[in-house]
Amino acid sequence: MAKSKFEQSLEDGAHYRITKIVGNWKGTTKTWFEKDVLVDEVLTEAEITSILDGRFISYDYQSSLEGKPLIGKMIIGFDIPYQKFTFSWIDSFHMGTQIMQASGAATEKGFSILGSYGNPEYGDQLFGWRTELEIINGDEIVFTAYNIMPGDEETKAIETILTRN
């Protein structure tokens, strides 16, 4: 009997790649609010778990920003019909009470996905937020996020380098 597309993806495709990073992680997060001005560098702990038999992973992390506790969660998956990575992201600082949805392409070592966020206080135009995952090897991953102001170039906002516990 032929394998389903999902079974094949779990065996050697996108789902295989993301489930390989399931585990406990520790590292550092750097944050910038404006180009080339580092605001904070802190310790980060994360747990990545498999959800729904490998269809998704949950990236749960805790850290701080300027001395205040910060927690967050991403549900990450690969959309087989549309051949793209997707995530939903919430956290206690950047997103407030919003949920960001993002999607984008696979890269050689992970993915690069684009979402948007806004607030009526900032006007009608949405800001962009591009997130990259780079799987360096089985014991090191890097999440990098870039803020994109309306009509402006993207600038690095967050870089989290994690090693497996």
Rank of each mutant, 00 (worst) to 15 (best):
K5Q: 03
K5P: 00
F6I: 05
F6Q: 05
E7Q: 05
E7D: 04
E11W: 07
D12Y: 10
D12E: 15
A14V: 14
T19I: 15
T19S: 12
K20A: 14
I21L: 13
I21D: 13
V22G: 10
V22E: 11
G23W: 11
N24Q: 09
W25M: 08
W25S: 09
W25I: 06
K26Q: 10
G27T: 07
G27Y: 07
G27R: 06
T28I: 09
T28L: 09
T28M: 11
T29Y: 11
T31W: 07
T31K: 08
F33R: 13
K35H: 13
K35R: 12
K35I: 11
V37Q: 15
L38N: 08
L38D: 07
V39E: 11
V42S: 08
V42W: 04
T44L: 06
E45H: 08
A46M: 06
A46S: 08
A46I: 05
E47P: 03
E47L: 01
I48Y: 02
T49W: 02
S50Y: 00
L52I: 06
D53P: 06
D53Y: 09
G54C: 04
G54L: 02
F56I: 01
S58C: 10
Y61H: 07
Y61P: 08
Q62D: 14
S63M: 09
S63Q: 11
S64R: 12
E66T: 07
G67P: 03
G67M: 00
G67L: 02
P69N: 05
I71W: 02
G72C: 02
M74P: 01
M74R: 01
M74A: 05
M74V: 01
I75L: 10
G77A: 07
F78I: 13
I80P: 13
I80N: 09
I80F: 13
Q83T: 15
F85G: 12
F85E: 11
T86K: 15
F87R: 15
W89F: 12
W89L: 13
I90E: 15
D91N: 14
S92T: 14
G96V: 12
A102N: 00
A105H: 03
E108K: 09
E108I: 06
K109Y: 03
F111W: 02
S112R: 04
L114Q: 01
L114P: 01
G115T: 03
Y117K: 00
G118M: 00
G118N: 02
E121A: 06
E121Y: 02
Y122C: 04
G123M: 03
D124P: 07
D124S: 09
D124L: 06
L126P: 04
G128R: 04
G128S: 03
W129A: 00
W129G: 00
W129R: 00
R130I: 05
T131M: 07
E132Q: 06
E132G: 02
L133W: 05
L133M: 09
I135N: 08
I135G: 08
I135K: 10
I136E: 10
I136A: 14
E140C: 11
I141W: 13
V142H: 12
Y146T: 03
N147G: 02
M149W: 04
G151W: 01
G151R: 00
